[in-house]
């Protein structure tokens, strides 16, 4: 149960401002997730994940997130439900070196999927449900699936209530479960695609007034590629 944000920049002129734009979005989500926070930034060469226990702004200031550039990034504020409040349990989860996953919601069969992954030699380092989903997606993509197909596999394999936001070295994708009870708003302009749990996290973005704003419908994969 949490807040999620994401920003996929289409206009290269905005790349240097990625962190500067993302940090206020994350701060807006502080009350949805008071326990811990984290971001994953893609600069075109590598992915950088920063996460810690505590309020998002402090974590971002401590790690100079606002000064960092890149072409896309996601962030998360966490209200822990069933697993511990630690840095390891915080989002984003990075199942592979260039993939990051954040999630708002609660999976109801993650223990089974965890065991299934273990049979394929995929181990989890925490008891967190999102880590299971992230490793599942990572496993699908490693096996050759396109990110959108990997997310469609999530709909088949994982049960419960979720909004997922996933980034890779080239892609940015959003998925909600069939009930779509956990909030998500997408805003798209010629310059960017932005996602957040609540609209107000998007309201400070440049040109938001002219954006196409919509809420993702259930079970539909929304994906953008650099």
């Amino acid at each position: 149960m949490c807040g999620i944000v994401g920003l996929h920049l289409k206009n290269a002129e905005l790349y240097p401002r990625l962190g500067e734009l993302l940090v206020p979005m994350l701060d807006c989500m502080a009350s949805r997730g008071p326990d811990s926070a984290g971001v994953a930034l893609h600069d075109g060469h590598a992915m950088h994940v920063v996460k810690d226990v505590g309020p998002p702004v402090e974590i971002c200031v401590r790690n100079g997130i606002a000064e960092r550039g890149g072409f896309q990034g996601i962030g998360h504020t966490r209200m822990a439900t069933e697993s511990a409040v630690t840095t390891q349990h915080s989002h984003p989860f990075a199942p592979t070196p260039d993939m990051a996953v954040v999630h708002n919601g609660s999976f109801s069969n993650h223990a089974t999927v965890r065991r299934r992954l273990a049979r394929h030699g995929i181990g989890c380092t925490t008891d967190n449900d999102t880590e299971v989903a992230s490793r599942f997606i990572g496993h699908q993509v490693a096996g050759g699936a396109d990110l959108a197909d990997a997310l469609r596999m999530v709909l088949k394999e994982l049960d419960g209530f979720f909004t997922l936001l996933v980034t890779t070295g080239t892609q940015f994708a959003v998925l909600r479960d069939s009930f779509a009870c956990k909030p998500a708003v997408i805003a798209e302009t010629d310059d960017y695609v932005a996602v957040a749990s609540e609209y107000h996290a998007l309201a400070g973005l440049p040109g938001i007034g002219d954006a196409r704003v919509f809420e993702p419908v259930p079970e539909e994969v929304y994906a953008w590629t650099r």
Binding site: M1, C2, G3, S31, R32, G33, M79, T81, N104, G105, S106, F161, C181, K182, P183, S197
Partner: peptide, 8 residues
């Protein structure tokens, strides 16, 4: 739905 919303 969920504790984050319940807080509000």
């Amino acid at each position: 739905v969920g504790p984050d919303d319940l807080r509000i």
